[in-house]
Design a protein around this nucleic acid. Structure first.
Length: 270
DNA sequence: ACCGCACCCTGAGCGC
DNA sequence: TGCGCTCAGGGTGCGG
């Protein structure tokens, strides 16, 4: 579930309970899909380390440790990081206990699509290296450059983390609506002006969501098109459409987001 | 290099 | 109540 806004809100919240504290003990469940670093190794290397900072790269969280190592966490679809978990609660995979005796921090993930990995000091991560520019600071020219040669629908390409890191299914739909671009447009057909519009829309929808405190508690009303197939468009009142693009549900207004945004009607006005 | 698809895992909601 | 089905906001890896 978490896209960039949820991850950023989590980062800000968890930074307060993590940064500056020394890890005394690590409790994990048995090895599973979520552990890119074996639980025993993770526990051994984290013990005694102090957390210097909690950073975000796209949808990844990175806890920087005092020995230069980094703890990488991805929340997948259902991952949660926080201090309000119960020890031994189902789906809790990691519990960090601290030397100060204060409240522990938990990593939970029902579906186990999340990931935990310890990167040694200076160790590179192919996952991180793959990421494009952070979507929160998307720039039109950068976006445009990455759409060259991409014939897939712009919606599908926006989900590619090497294009813009952090955009997921919800905010891809929201940004395309805001930019008045059809999700079905071949990515490479976007003009520089449209790339600018889209980059600005991506930044805007992400920032608004962070400001609202993005999360599961978000009001359905906060989304303009996502999950609203069949409902009237807020702009033109005609029904929104739900289609499947890149195996993901995709919501848009066929009238406000025309496939030929640079089509006949747009050209006629020029 | 790009694209579509299968797959990873669990729970919620729905029709019967 | 229970069963079987579909769906879910993540990413990777494969073959074409």
């Amino acid at each position: 579930m978490p896209e960039l806004p949820e991850v950023e809100v989590t980062r800000r919240k968890v930074a307060r309970m993590l940064v500056g504290r020394r890890i005394a003990e690590v409790v994990t469940t048995r090895d599973s899909y979520v552990f890119l670093t074996r639980p025993a190794v993770l526990a051994e290397r984290l013990r005694g380390r102090r957390v210097e900072a909690l950073e975000r790269a796209g949808k990844y969280l990175l806890a920087r440790l005092d020995d230069g190592a980094r703890l990488l966490v991805h929340l997948g679809m259902t991952g949660e990081l926080g201090g309000d978990g119960l020890p031994g609660e189902a789906h809790t995979h990691v519990e960090l206990r601290f030397a100060d005796g204060g409240p522990p921090v938990f990593f939970r993930d029902v579906r186990k699509f999340g990931k935990v990995q310890l990167l040694a000091a200076g160790e590179r991560s192919a996952r991180l290296d793959r990421l494009g520019p952070d979507a929160l600071h998307a720039r039109g020219a950068e976006l445009c450059a990455r759409l060259v040669g991409r014939r897939a629908p712009i919606k599908a390409v926006l989900l590619d983390q090497s294009v813009l890191a952090g955009v997921g299914n919800i905010y891809a739909d929201e940004a395309l609506f805001e930019a008045r671009l059809s999700p079905l447009r071949p990515a490479s057909s976007l003009t520089p002006a449209e790339c600018q519009r889209l980059a600005a829309a991506v930044r805007a929808v992400l920032r608004r969501s962070i400001a609202r405190g993005a999360g599961y508690r978000e009001e359905p009303d906060d989304f303009r098109v996502y999950g609203r197939g069949g409902e009237p468009c807020r702009s033109c009142r005609r029904p929104l459409r739900r289609v499947v693009v890149a195996q993901r549900s995709t919501h848009y207004c066929p009238r406000c987001q025309r496939a030929g945004a640079r089509g006949a009607s747009a050209r006629r006005r020029e």
